[in-house]
Simulated scan of single mutants.
Amino acid sequence: MPEQKEKRNLTKSKIIYYMLNHSVTSKAELAKELNLSMPTVLTNVNELIAKGIIAENGEYESTGGRKAKSIGINKSYCRAMGMIITANHLEMVMVNLGYEIEKIKRVRLKFSSEIAYCSEVQKNVREFLKESDAGDEILGIGVAIPGIIDQERKIVLKSHALKLENYSLSFLEQALGFPVYFENDANAAMLAEDTLKYANAIYLSLNHTLGGAFCIDGQLVRGQNQKAGEFGHMILVPGGKKCYCGKLGCADAYCAASVLTNDNQISLEKFLEQLESKDLATTKKWEEYLDNLAILISNLRMAYDMDIILGGDVGGVLSRYMIPLGERIMAYNGFDHDVSYMKNCSYEKEASAVGVAKHFFTEYVMQM
């Protein structure tokens, strides 16, 4: 009997996972795509409808005969909160079961390793939950942090951005008062993507600093010391510009968003306005940036031979510049016939916050 129950739970999980990434489907489609018998689909779908997790939401166009009922996830069934900690800000999002962002709030809060910082975070989170009308109904709070994290011991091993080393996250966890999940910000952004669609993929996070992550068979690869995906600190130009980590020639010094914003002296939006107005200095900087980014992407493709998702602040706007970027990449890559492996990110903003929130939905589905 326990074995049968486990099998039923696994089937439910498969159905929910599929529906989380397909906003509208039908029982016939589930049977076909998941290789399940129609009686199995009917039994499980009816149970999930009774629980309120999924709902009938219309009808498919008829191809002859009776119209099939369309079904989808009940997005309001549960929620989770995601949070990004940076050196100077705290960003919070409320995400529903349909992976939609219902509310965003960004507050200026300078990071500190002092306990008083945890109290400030607690205060802001309580205000955000009150404004979201979420109360105690959320599954948990995910926290994305720019640094190398030991999840088992809940320690930030190292963070250049926050100037931390061996920093315990226990005080912050206690202050939040909900189940908490901590994750590196680039890993979290990778988790915001559909890891069924991108089971084997690299996520290149082109934010103020450059980060990265990658999945194999739908699972994050963390490496022996939790450092996998630190693409920003691969040497791109030997003896080149100084990186914030202290080394010379790191990819971060050439491909991070800070290269375009002069280390936040101007906004990325202002840079793009100047680019669109054909400002000569801005155009020259952009072309140099694309050249360096093309080398990095080509190197990653050679090393991993998988899809590369362009994310982060710059990744969010690169969809407008894929042709000039692709032309540069092809000049460095003699093995691929096109650049169809380059993908645009699903979330132009708040990807890391969505990714850490999604962790709780995955956990919830697994426990069904």
Rank of each mutant, 00 (worst) to 15 (best):
G98E: 09
E183H: 00
K247E: 14
I145Y: 03
L42P: 00
H359C: 00
Y77G: 01
D217K: 12
E350V: 01
E350L: 01
I235L: 10
I309G: 03
Y289H: 07
V339W: 09
V156L: 00
H208P: 00
Y304A: 01
T63E: 14
L300M: 07
I73P: 05
G223M: 05
L275Y: 14
R66W: 10
G65E: 09
K51N: 10
K247D: 13
I138C: 03
L280D: 13
I49G: 02
E33R: 13
K197Q: 12
A50R: 15
D133G: 06
K7V: 13
N9Y: 13
A351P: 04
Y99V: 11
C118Y: 02
R328Y: 08
E91W: 01
L36M: 12
A253K: 04
C245H: 08
L204R: 03
L97Y: 14
K358I: 11
K278C: 12
K158C: 03
Q4W: 07
N57C: 11
K227W: 09
E273T: 10
I71Q: 03
D133Q: 11
E61Q: 14
Y77S: 07
Y244F: 14
Q367I: 05
I216S: 11
E127L: 12
L236Y: 04
K270E: 15
K158S: 12
K130P: 00
G98L: 06
L42A: 15
K242I: 12
M322I: 12
S159C: 02
A188H: 04
L109P: 06
V317C: 04
L206H: 05
F178T: 06
T63Y: 14
G98C: 06
H233F: 10
D133L: 10
G249M: 05
S170Y: 11
E6I: 13
N166E: 13
A186H: 02
P179F: 00
K163S: 13
T362P: 00
I84D: 15
S267D: 08
G64W: 09
M38D: 10
G246V: 04
Y289C: 05
L20S: 07
V143W: 04
N187P: 03
N35F: 15
G135V: 04
D150M: 00
C78A: 10
L210W: 03
I148C: 00
A357H: 02
Y347M: 01
L48D: 06
C118H: 05
Q151V: 08
P39L: 03
L210H: 01
E230D: 10
Y289N: 08
E269D: 14
Q122N: 14
L20G: 08
I235D: 02
M83H: 01
F128Y: 10
G218P: 04
K278S: 14
M92S: 00
S298N: 14
G334W: 10
P146D: 07
G355Q: 03
